[in-house]
């Protein structure tokens, strides 16, 4: 398919608040992107009319239970069949920040053996505790499986901001080792927090902004078509969004976040 034929659905519910800038990232690259309220999707639309699905950032339904849990339940209740088909057809699903939390709560990630009935991981309260908005460095760990980072060289260090209070990626203690091995075996590990020079903080704040296990910032499913991450690539899309763009006489045109959206569109162009 051609770029201009790519149809992306950015879903939102009450409390979602990063839909507009996420939509902008796709339209800037020439794709079609539509923002629709979940209620409208259920009533008048089908996700299967779209080539890709995005759960953007925010506080869906206030996140009054665990972050992402309410929207995940709602999505599964209303869209389970369509969602399964969507994933099986290897159409891409992207979850950013709250969207990542939704994908994990819905069992779409890490999805070692397909969509799991119960969450296999969690995004727990930050350590140190509290909401935090800051720019972090991420190291690209994927060896080519993740379709959202195909255009990014392995080990590239990227500069992208985080803004969340619940972003500490965890497995249950007893599964930690086994699941981590699976992430590596299946090439599901995508981003880890690191220093500017690419060194891992081993959980240490502030380089690891939330205490995430193994400094994990983003993972994909074994097929590489469902991807969730805590950092916000849509906030690092343009050069003028970067925190230090004013340092140079000529600001860069784009930031590292653009690579994620570009890779996804390239995949769709080749695949469908």
């Amino acid at each position: 398919m051609k770029t201009q034929d790519v149809r992306v659905l950015v879903m939102r519910v009450g409390g979602t608040n990063c839909d507009a800038e996420t939509q902008r990232a796709f339209t800037e690259l020439g794709a079609q992107a539509q923002v629709l309220h979940f209620n409208e999707v259920i009533k008048n639309h089908s996700i299967l009319d779209y080539n890709a699905l995005v759960f953007p950032g925010g506080f869906s339904y206030g996140d009054y239970v665990r972050a992402g849990a309410i929207w995940a339940t709602g999505t599964l209740t209303k869209l389970r069949k369509d969602l399964k088909e969507f994933v099986e057809q290897e159409r891409p699903i992207l979850g950013i920040c709250n969207g990542f939390q939704v994908l994990v709560e819905a069992g779409l990630l890490p999805a070692f053996n397909g969509i799991s009935e119960y969450p296999k991981a969690t995004l727990a309260t930050n350590i140190p505790i509290g909401y935090r908005c800051k720019w972090v460095y991420l190291k690209h760990e994927n060896s080519g499986n993740c379709i959202f980072t195909k255009n990014i060289p392995k080990n590239k260090v990227m500069h992208i901001p985080v803004a969340h209070g619940e972003g500490r990626f965890l497995f249950a203690k007893e599964n930690e080792k086994r699941y981590l091995q699976k992430l590596y075996d299946n090439d599901q590990l995508v981003f880890r927090y690191c220093t500017k020079d690419g060194d891992y903080p081993n959980g240490e704040f502030p380089v690891n902004p939330n205490g995430a296990f193994h400094d994990i910032a983003g993972i994909c499913n074994p097929q590489g078509t469902v991807f969730g991450l805590m950092p916000h690539p849509e906030r690092a899309f343009y050069g003028w969004q970067l925190p230090d763009w004013a340092k140079t006489e000529q600001a860069p045109t784009f930031g590292d976040g653009k690579l994620v959206f570009e890779s996804m569109i390239d995949y769709l162009k080749k695949r469908f």
Binding site: N17, G57, R132, Q241, P243
Partner: peptide
């Protein structure tokens, strides 16, 4: 300042906290 999201909407060109 870090407990306030100053980046949401992706339109903040000059932020309250500058650079590194």
């Amino acid at each position: 300042i870090r407990t306030y999201d100053h980046e949401v909407k992706g339109n903040t060109v000059l932020k309250p906290l500058q650079s590194k």
